[in-house]
């Protein structure tokens, strides 16, 4: 079953739009949602949750259309948007007390186990928490009501390496049973290299690719050679960097001509994001 099925999502703002966004996440897997700042990650995520009204498109979660079953489906979704910056004068206890009333399947046991794991003190006020602690608290809330789909916007940002590692462990523990699915956006691509099964890459409001992680990386190559060889391949490169040693550029694996005597390597997720961002620079 598909945990998340997004088809032809469109949303237009005066200076920005997401255009024909479509991707699917199979139940029981982790998908990383990547793209530079302003690429449309948060807009997409907010549209999924109906927090911004999309102009058109269809979204199904766990097999049900969200437009028709919104209240019901939201019981099954856990979401977190980085840290919490509302009701900062309230104690965690108070905020939890309010949040839990909305969820039928709220589990105090789960909640306290995460509080313990994250070393959070229930009697503290939101304002007294560090950024990382706020992120952990918002994740605790997202994880405590038996959600089957977690939609997390940059959950690892603001966390130290130890907490990030622990959070990724939690993600992998959660999907162990094959029941829970996770979609999370991030800039920290090493997190994805470790635990993501699928990658969806958005750029300027459009999905560039959405596929299994290795397939995604292997559909591109880093090509390097001398400056004189550049002319031969330039038209096919997504973008390139030139220095005194020659050039390095990103190319679609399918565009590679076996006759070229150039070095090729599989790019990292960072490489792909960087070279795609450079492409835009060319047109400006």
């Amino acid at each position: 079953m598909l945990a998340l099925d997004i088809r032809n999502l469109n949303k237009k703002y005066p200076n920005f739009q997401i255009k024909d966004v479509s991707f699917q996440l199979e139940q029981g897997y982790i998908m990383g949602f990547i793209g530079v700042n302003g690429a449309g990650k948060t807009t997409t995520i907010k549209s999924i949750l109906n927090m911004v009204q999309a102009d058109s498109g269809e979204i199904s979660i766990l097999g049900k259309n969200i437009a028709e079953h919104e209240t019901e489906l939201k019981q099954d979704i856990g979401c977190a948007f980085g840290d919490i910056d509302f009701y900062t004068r309230s104690r965690l206890k108070t905020l939890t007390g309010i949040t839990k009333k909305f969820y039928k399947n709220w589990s105090d046991e789960t909640y306290y186990s995460y509080l313990n794991r994250f070393k959070l003190d229930e009697n503290k006020k939101i304002a007294e928490l560090s950024t990382g602690m706020k992120v952990k608290y918002s994740l605790t809330l997202a994880l405590s009501h038996g959600a089957r789909l977690l939609i997390l916007d940059e959950p690892t940002s603001g966390l130290d390496p130890v907490s990030r590692d622990d959070l990724l462990d939690i993600f992998q523990e959660l999907i162990m049973g094959g029941e829970i699915s996770i979609l999370f956006s991030t800039h920290i691509t090493s997190d994805l290299e470790r635990c993501a099964d699928y990658i969806t890459f958005i750029e300027q409001g459009q999905i560039v690719a959405s596929s299994e992680k290795n397939e995604f990386k292997e559909s591109y190559r880093l090509l390097s050679g001398s400056e004189s060889q550049l002319n031969e391949v330039k038209g096919k490169l997504i973008s390139c960097k030139i220095n005194s040693f020659g050039f390095t550029g990103l190319i679609h694996a399918r565009d590679i001509d076996p006759a070229w005597s150039l070095n090729t390597a599989i790019p990292t997720l960072d490489d792909i994001m960087i070279y795609f961002a450079k492409k835009e620079g060319v047109y400006v």
């Binding site: 029981g28 897997y29 523990e173 470790r194 099964d197 992680k213 290795n214």
Partner: peptide, 10 residues
């Protein structure tokens, strides 16, 4: 996957 810290599909 959990123990090796790699993705399920890997």
């Amino acid at each position: 996957a959990l123990e090796l810290h790699v993705s399920v599909i890997t």
